[in-house]
Design a protein around this nucleic acid. Structure first.
Lengths: 95, 95
DNA sequence: CAGACATTTAGCGATTTCGCTAGATGTCGT
DNA sequence: ACGACATCTAGCGAAATCGCTAAATGTCTG
């Protein structure tokens, strides 16, 4: 990953986790073992379903999620790797 | 810090670091030894000065910065502590 | 005191974000 | 094929964000 691409990726990831609902989605996935269907995730919010759908898209565009079609459901899977970009950035401030 | 206050603080901090200019301000402060005047910081951006002033305010409201008046200048000082909230949040995902 | 200097506050306009509702899409069971 | 189901896409409206310019504030110097 070129340094510029990395900066852009960091920007997308930080943007993605800047919304509480999106952080909640990531945590929910984590504690469900990494995967859940769109319906299971949407059920955890009071938002209308399309609102959650959009949050899922933001997370996926940032590379924090992948999805696969399983029959008429969609299974979203957490991809923790890019969270490392934030950890790495925070590392600059290590005392 | 009550758990609710902590959640709110995390939200403010993540929001604050979600803008590239604000991340740049934090890094600049860090590499200058933790402090710099508003003018020194503003000089590092192509933004108009009041734009930087507002970014500084967001960072300070999130508890990532403090300032003190020194004559006619203002010295901003990095407060790394609240960055720990983000580190802590990321910790949930530790493999 | 007057004027220069360092910085902030006020407030406008463009853009983005976030929620919503309505309708489209693809899949399963009968 | 038909209807039910799971989910997405389209697009609207309110609110927030971000940049800007103009004007205010407080402090130093002569």
């Amino acid at each position: 990953m070129t340094p510029i691409a990395k900066l852009r990726a960091l920007d997308e990831v930080v943007d993605a986790i800047a919304h509480p609902a999106r952080r909640q989605i990531l945590l929910t996935l984590h504690f469900r073992g990494g995967s859940a269907t769109a319906g299971e995730l949407a059920a955890r919010f009071e938002h209308a379903w399309p609102t959650t759908t959009r949050h899922l898209r933001v997370l996926e565009d940032a590379g924090l999620l992948r999805h696969e079609r399983r029959g008429r459901t969609r299974v979203y899977t957490l991809d923790r790797e890019r969270l490392g970009l934030v950890t790495e950035w925070l590392g600059w401030f290590a005392t």
